[in-house]
Amino acid sequence: MKQGKRICPGCGAVLQSEDETRPGYVPAQVLAEREEVTCQRCFRITHYNEVMTVRLDAEDFARILERIGQTDALVVKLVDLFDVNGTWIPDLARYTGDNPVLLVGNKVDLLPRQTNWQKVRLWLEQMTRELGLTPTRIELCSGKKGLRLEAVAEAIEELRDGRDVYVVGVTNVGKSTFLNRLLPLYGVDTRRPITTSRFPGTTLDVIEIPLGDGCRLYDTPGIVNAHQISHMVSPQDLKILIPEETLRPRVYQLNDQQTLFFGGLARLDFVRGERQSFVCYVSNRLRIHRTKLVNADALYERHRGGLLSPPRGSDWQHLPPFVRHTFEVPPDPVDIVISGLGWISVRGTGALVDVHVPQGVGVGLRRALI
């Protein structure tokens, strides 16, 4: 906590009236006249669902988070079950030291209704080992729906053992929504809730929350994973790209030499293999278009920004150029993951697949989640 300075209760930034492009900006008159005030950015997110761009770089995040490894605390790490790979924090030990880690898979409500949650938890346990982390415990929940938050709260109480708690996660993992639903279980007054929105990077500094026993819970700012495609689209297109309701898997029976376009943001070419199913787990609002591979280049040039959107209109001009990633897909069930967009499950007899995404977007194979 910054002593002697006024803090925005929504995002944690120090309130200031000097530079509206920096975190915490409030017009000088408002700051002088009102005792309780949120920054202009939080106000616009809350009341108008619009975001203001502010400058907060990787060094700012590192400066804020490096304190975690220097304290004796419980670390609660959130991942988005819709985008586990995209919301993973590499080298988390750099920030946590020897502190115990409670891994929370958030947004379980987005998974199809027939999903076995216990199998998801076991899948997540194996994934974390492959990614180099051995958490003390794993829990699943939905911050938005309030599902299984009591179990998460019980795990926090057991593992923190009278210590402070740091909640960490990448941008847009649902951390602020999660905390706004969790904190009332601790008797914390949430009449001035943490600012929440679909826009990445809403929390801009550490928010310190007393837990009532002399300890504190710290909400840290989201770490930016630049390989998420969500960082390359406009706030309007994020409404289409980021799911807010239970996913409806879309199944395509493809022959080789067929292509799937995911709006104008990604393209999957089934180059070679036997006819098989490609099951797409992306936002229900994202349009998928099927065509022949021989027509794919011409279709993209002719219809990007229109039939193939988002991005809409001329916004596609701001995307980095597409890069091709080639995968020999094994016959075992696997997911082709596009960071920030979702995944395509393949359960056939093996295939050669090309995936085209904007340069810098993460793409890979993993063991099938569902």
Rank of each mutant, 00 (worst) to 15 (best):
P311I: 05
E36F: 14
D213P: 07
F262W: 05
G342P: 08
L299Q: 04
E301S: 11
G263C: 08
L65T: 08
G132H: 04
L286K: 03
Y166A: 00
I7A: 11
D219G: 08
V251P: 02
R191E: 15
G360L: 03
S314F: 13
C215N: 13
A153L: 03
D109L: 09
P320V: 10
F262D: 07
T349L: 12
L319T: 01
F270H: 04
R191G: 11
F43T: 11
V346H: 15
Y252M: 04
I242T: 11
E36V: 13
Q16E: 07
I194N: 02
G105Y: 02
K119G: 06
G313C: 05
L74P: 08
P310I: 06
P112G: 15
R347G: 01
Q114P: 00
R63T: 04
E328A: 15
L149R: 09
R367C: 00
V51I: 15
D91G: 10
I89F: 09
Y48R: 14
L159R: 11
E35S: 15
S142C: 00
E328V: 13
D237Y: 05
F270N: 06
E125K: 09
V363S: 07
Y48A: 14
R137K: 09
E301P: 01
E208P: 04
W316R: 04
V206R: 15
P331S: 10
G305W: 13
L92V: 05
G348P: 09
Y300I: 07
D354L: 00
N180W: 12
N85Y: 06
S17F: 09
